[in-house]
């Protein structure tokens, strides 16, 4: 057997590709579903918290800031393990994919809140003055005047952070969520061959390379517009 054949035998065995293809595809579906759910809930919650914070009510701001700091400082895997192993001990049983969705949503929300908030405070104070002086209330000013301007500044960092958090769906494999990586590694131990693992890796590359490219395109486009 030549080196190339041996390599192919270990990493790209056709019959294994054929056998585990459906598993990887179902993993892709799980990964995409969780990723989309995380993006939607995480961004919505982050925006919601930033809006609350804009009312500058001290009693509400303090918990928001603490929440944001904690979830920006903690490794997501640590939180995932705490929730996954901790809740059943309290008699609360939620499946792994829900834990993954919940934790990653909270992480994304924390980062998104911080980004939205920076965007809001970066809009000049005169904009608030002008809008309020014509009788718009806080909510109307925020939605019609401030956020439309803030969003432009927020989009590039938000894109990057969203991509980073969705990549963390791979952490689900640690708590047995049937996403791509989990399918790949379990098929690897079943078959005693690295081919399924390679398939999983390739799936990630195929999904995320375009996403990352889109992210840097957005970043560049917005940077250019601002200049």
């Amino acid at each position: 057997m030549t080196g190339l054949e041996r390599f192919q035998d270990a990493f790209l065995k056709p019959e294994l590709i054929e056998r585990y293809w459906p598993d990887i595809v179902s993993g892709i579906a799980v990964t995409l579903q969780i990723a989309v759910a995380v993006v939607v809930t995480g961004l919505a919650l982050g925006l919601f918290l930033a809006v609350i914070r804009s009312y500058r009510i001290r009693l509400l701001n303090l918990p928001i800031i603490v929440f944001v700091d904690i979830f920006r400082a903690l490794p997501p895997l640590v939180v995932i393990l705490i929730v996954y192993f901790g809740l059943p001990n309290l008699g609360i049983n939620i499946p792994g994919f829900a834990v993954l969705w919940l934790v990653l949503s909270l992480v994304l929300a924390a980062f998104a809140e911080e980004i939205f908030w920076s965007g809001i405070v970066s809009v000049r104070k005169g904009q608030w003055d002008a809008a309020r002086s014509t009788g718009l209330d806080h909510w109307q000013t925020l939605t019609s005047v401030i956020l439309p301007q803030a969003i432009r500044i927020c989009v590039p960092p938000l894109t990057n952070r969203t991509i980073a958090v969705t990549k963390n769906t791979a952490l689900g494999t640690v708590i047995g969520v049937g996403e791509i990586m989990n399918q790949g590694t379990s098929a690897m131990s079943l078959s005693g061959n690295a081919t399924p693992l390679m398939m999983a890796a390739v799936a990630y590359v195929v999904i995320f390379v375009p996403v990352v490219a889109l992210g840097s395109w957005i970043e560049r486009r917005f940077a250019w517009k601002r200049a």
Binding site: A10, F11, K167, N168, T169, A170, L171, T173, M181, T185, M188, N193, A194, L197, M198, A200, A201, Y204, V205, F208, V209, V211, V212
Partner: peptide, 17 residues
């Protein structure tokens, strides 16, 4: 683009093959 965990597992568990 590659999630770091994927990279790590490929290197640690894949390369031995």
């Amino acid at each position: 683009a590659v999630p770091p965990l994927v990279l790590l597992i490929v290197i640690y568990s894949g390369l031995p093959f």
